[in-house]
Design a protein around this nucleic acid. Structure first.
Lengths: 230, 230
DNA sequence: TACTTTTATAAAGATTTTATAAAGATTTTG
DNA sequence: CAAAATCTTTATAAAATCTTTATAAAAGTA
């Protein structure tokens, strides 16, 4: 069982090693990059759940890397930096960073901030989501129930459903779904999406050929709705 | 024109005043509370878009307030505190805080952290457009409603309507519409436009053969208008 | 008015997009 | 390692949307 994947970007070998050990101990998976270029490539190929980004990189300003990442990367980015001046902090936050920690940082605090960022703004107490009194997602157990019966979903199907549930009512484009669930390298594999949508419908819809939850928005994407409110 | 609502919770009159002025200057709406009890009541009644919470309250520990809020409140909470010890920071973050700032804080940084937290929670009112109290375009959901009923539009119809809505009152030429919606290669396909205008009218007009929204400007183009005077 | 141009609309035809089953490949699990 | 599960690819049918055609109505012009 392996936890969320974190990409560590820092040019100092020592810090990379320290972070890798610390994060591993807290049950995170870790990938590391030493340069801006490497960072962007690794982010695209691994699609990490969070990025720890040092601002002082040798080849390019971390602020630039941040901007480039934010063109497509939607998950949390935490900046680590020796610079503690307000100007840099504001710039980083406005460039899309979720948090900014000044080096040397306290390990426990860093971990807590990582947990907070990954958790998002959904409180821990809200760990289950019920739609139309019949479809239930339990985020703690990673389980889905339809009319109290457990529905067995694969990891990918579950991720897809969670993404839908968290964006109820909103059209999610093919690109967006593919990038968030499969990773940025898959944005053109629309057929995957069709296959998995069909599988999901077969499992959660009462009548899969007349879906009430996952609606098709032809040429755009899909929309998850719960009747009561839409 | 009023921005997102922020609830300031602090027992020191001076700090409340300072924050109120600072936040107002940055175009936020502000409510303030001085005690734990008051904070929870005001959060419930005003449902703010973000809460700034001082940990050192007179009647109850801020950590407790935080826990209570997080039982139902899902938007960002930023902690302000004179305590800079790691233990308190970790506790607050794990209790559901999104950020933790040590007092005295730098105003610019606080504002940047607020912007960062609030980003993504764009209030619905900011990206929905209502005409004549009956035709509604929700850009966030990519949905159109007529008298609260969802109107199903194809991708092209939606793009066309959005273009009209964003240019309310202005005549848009055939050329312009064709170029913007279909692309530069289609500027001579006026018949497309006629077909799609007819379809759009059928879907959004009360009486499609006597349109009130999409008016024909013969030999020039079309004009989208909203009376909005009742 | 008579004639031409432009617009509206329905409906048929063509194309694109989507749904689904099922086979093959790969990964995970026991 | 073998079996099971899952992912990926392929093929084909069905549905939705776009495009074209035809015709009537409206608007503009001589």
């Amino acid at each position: 069982m392996t936890g969320p994947l974190i990409l560590v970007v820092d040019d100092e070998e020592q810090i990379r090693k320290l972070l890798e050990i610390t994060l591993h101990t807290s049950d995170f998976s870790v990938k590391a990059a030493a340069t801006a270029k490497e960072a962007i490539i690794m982010a695209k190929t691994n699609n990490p759940d969070l990025i720890l980004l040092d601002i002082g990189l040798p080849d390019e300003s971390g602020q630039e890397v941040l901007k480039k990442l934010r063109q497509w990367y939607t998950k949390p980015i935490i900046i680590l930096s020796v610079q503690s001046d307000e100007e840099n902090i504001i710039k980083a936050l406005d460039n899309g960073a979720n948090d900014y920690l000044v080096k040397p940082f306290r390990t426990g605090e860093l971990l807590a901030r990582i947990r907070s960022s990954i958790r998002g703004i959904i409180p821990q107490s809200l760990n289950t989501h019920v739609f139309n009194h019949e479809l239930e997602i339990d985020y703690n157990l990673r389980a889905v129930k339809k009319n109290k019966e457990i529905v067995k979903l694969t990891a990918t199907e579950y991720d897809l459903l969670v993404l839908f549930a968290k964006n109820e009512g909103r059209v999610l484009t093919h690109q967006y779904l593919l990038r968030e669930v499969w990773g940025p390298g898959y944005v053109n594999q629309s057929q995957y999406l069709r296959v998995f949508i069909a599988q999901l419908r077969k499992k959660i819809e009462t009548e899969p050929n007349q879906p009430e939850y996952i609606l098709t928005e032809s040429r755009v994407g899909y929309r998850f709705v719960a009747k009561d409110n839409f």
